[in-house]
Design a protein around this nucleic acid. Sequence first.
DNA 1: TCTGGGGTCCTAGGACCC
DNA 2: TCTGGGGTCCTAGGACCC
Length: 428
Amino acid sequence: MPFPLRSSKAILHVDGDAFFAACEVSLDPSLRGKPVVTGLERNIAAAMTYEAKRRGVTRGMILSEVRKICPDAVILASDYETYAIFSRRMYSIVRRYTPVVEEYSIDECFADLSGLRRMHRMPFRSIALAVKADLEKELGMTFSVGLGPSKVLAKAGSRLGKPAGFTAIAGRDIEAVLGSLDIGKVWGIGPNTAAYLRAFGMKTALEFAMKDEAWIKENLAKPQHELWHELRGTSVLPVAIPTSEPQQSIGKTRTFTPPSANRTFVFSELSRNVENACFKARRHGLAARYVSFFLKRQDFRRSGSEQRLREATSIPSDIIAAIEPEFARLFSSGTPYRATGVTLSGFEYASRQQLGLFESAAPDIPAEVYERIDILSRKHGRHAVFLGSSLAARIYRGKQTRNIAVKNIPGDPYTGRRIGIPFMGEVF
DNA sequence: TCTGGGGTCCTAGGACCC
DNA sequence: TCTGGGGTCCTAGGACCC
């Protein structure tokens, strides 16, 4: 055996097949067997059943194209609240078998079954199959399941049997599985690393795993070194159980077409992203210590900066005030931009916020104003009230936005002027 | 998938301090 | 004022994932 196992872990990976579309089918049995596609709200196919995939529907496809190649497609708007409920049920079913479950994404999880054979009175593969059977029976959809001595191998297993398959990779199987696994298909190896490794003549995961450790340390960084261990069956990536810590970051980005070189408009897009990110942060009761933002040019190059805020906040005007000088520094006039994005991080729970001795307890816009705004937003649609600095971006999109935005002219009680943010120039 | 949006983690280099 | 070593924090950006 080329890879002596240095750990004896049993890791399970569970992956819902065509998850969003499968949730819809589970809720409406009349859809079973039909090509179902979600993504109506964005006019882009987000998820699709295997029936639709077989007819050529792919992710990101424009819906007019979907209707052309698959006229009988059932096209639905995404319903993330419902998918999240299915997701939580998935986790809780897996937790019947082990408490060590990592909620990796809405449709996937890892579970650590190590040491549980005796308790369940079954071999690991029987436990895995029992988990899979429970999930499929109770959620009304199929799952792809992988079992292996590490997360990376478990993930490779579930991918091999898609859809509805089960693949267990025992220590003695590793060599055969890796030998037919393309290097670029390994979880954690993206296009860049794959190209780098191919330049050294490695085509399969096996060739990578057979390299000696000194070479890996010499030529690669920590993430790839970890992958190397995992592929050899040595578990180094723990299955991470949820903590009570807040999430690391909240970001909002948006691409606009066509690209724009208009400073007012580009800044309004950024401002709008700030408002949306802050809205989400407040919904979670969080205040951010750091902000970063970027401007993406037409040629996809990005420039951006990150900075520490004087105090943790989720008030857009604070963030915009911090960002503005950096925006002025980075914005290059005459250059068309295609997207902006902002990320808040370094969160504290808003209730735990401490004010420093000289920090202001009364920012330009008091937190109570935002409590009212959040109530209005829930009542009248997501963003009924917004800053004047976001106006150009608000006008820019869609019918509903336009109706709302027209009411929000500068000087109007609910817009930027009243709220205290200087309105940056005229509407583009 | 000539490229949407939301995330996580890592690293190199500079600033600053002892 | 210059020199050297070492540590930590910050920032910009890369890479990858779903």
